[in-house]
């Protein structure tokens, strides 16, 4: 296992280099230059060209790639042309908001989805199963922005139970009061963001459990006189979790990338909205920073999935 881990981490290096090349090439292919949005059109083109020349814009592609990579390794993603601040600072400003929102959404959907999936699988075709299934299909088919707007319209606007938008960070409260205030702002975005992952996670748990419950070793457990609860929550669940772990780890990158739609609907200043801004404004350095960070997270989420498999399933050996 240790050997496998080391090998697996070493493989990450060429993967990340490859990814960085692709990102660099894609952004390179986008039209416009960093100044096309920044500078007054009356500035003479000669001057712009001179400035671009000075910052190495016309250097050959490999030279620019190596220069960018060298800086990136030092966590220097350059200077955002739109925000006028270092990319790393902007990202670090936005990341906590996204992590809070995404983290709670993931936690909430896992805590709700897995038990619901188990219940609906152990009582297949019962009333509970049908209710849960119908909600899951609603969750899978309703677009997040629409559901978000419904929530805002009824729960926030008409009933006034929750704030309409924002993170609640600027209220100037302190201590417990601040925590409560922010938690209050978090409820609706978390519910909206959880909806889709909750529904799909629940369906995965259900079908995986149904598959496992049919297995011979569950019958063996019954013939041993094991309590039904132990059979379901230990013998069956541990086997059923293997595919569920895949789905869970695949949700991790979106935790960091942010949810563009949910963040937009709730004016939540996270990574999702930041990325849209970067694209809109030809903010290459920022866009490259975000994309690169995403790539790293995805690669590590895969690694995490592999580690979790080996931990849950002793049959998986990586030597």
């Amino acid at each position: 296992m240790k050997k496998y881990l080391i090998r697996r981490i070493l493989i990450l290096i060429p993967i990340l280099i490859g990814v960085s090349m692709i990102i660099f090439a894609l952004i390179e292919a986008m039209p416009g230059d960093p100044y096309s949005d920044m500078i007054d059109p009356t500035v003479p083109p000669d001057l712009i060209e001179e400035r671009l020349e000075a910052m190495g814009y016309f250097d050959p592609l490999p030279v620019r790639y190596v220069r960018w990579l060298g800086r990136t390794l030092r966590f220097d993603f350059g200077y955002s042309t739109n925000y006028g601040a270092p990319v790393s600072v902007i990202m670090l400003n936005r990341l906590p908001n996204t992590l809070i929102l995404g983290g709670f959404a993931l936690l909430f959907s896992t805590i709700v989805a897995i038990p619901l999936g188990i219940i609906s699988s152990t009582r297949q075709y019962s009333v509970v199963d049908y209710i849960v299934t119908v909600f899951a299909f609603i969750g899978l088919s309703i677009p997040a922005f629409f559901f978000g707007l419904l929530m805002i319209r009824y729960l926030a606007f008409e009933l006034g139970w929750f704030p309409i938008a924002g993170t609640g960070a600027g209220a100037g409260y302190e201590g417990v009061r601040m925590l409560l205030h922010r938690a209050h702002h978090l409820v609706l975005p978390v519910v909206v963001l959880s909806l889709l992952s909750l529904a799909s996670l629940m369906r995965y748990t259900r079908s995986s459990m149904l598959e496992v419950i049919k297995q011979d070793y569950i019958r063996t457990a019954r013939s041993k006189g094991i309590k039904e609860k132990v059979i379901i929550y230990r013998h069956a669940l541990k086997n059923a979790l293997i595919p569920v772990v895949t789905v869970l780890t695949m949700m991790l990158p979106s935790l960091v990338s942010g949810a563009v739609l949910t963040e937009t609907v709730f004016s939540w200043p996270g990574m999702g909205t930041l990325m849209i801004d970067a694209i809109d404004n030809d903010d290459y350095p920022l866009l490259m920073g975000i994309t690169m960070m995403l790539a790293i997270i995805i690669v590590f989420a895969n690694l995490l999935a592999d580690i979790l498999y080996a931990w849950i399933d002793p049959r998986i050996k990586y030597d």
Binding site: D216, Y217, S223, K224, G225, K227, N239, P314
Partner: peptide
């Protein structure tokens, strides 16, 4: 009945390859 199973009546099955739970020692 559950308390009797395993304690007083037990059973072994045809397929030893699948009768044991793969994720427990």
């Amino acid at each position: 009945m559950r308390k009797l199973r395993g304690a007083e009546i037990s059973m072994i099955f045809q397929e030893p390859m699948t009768a044991l739970n793969p994720v427990f020692s």
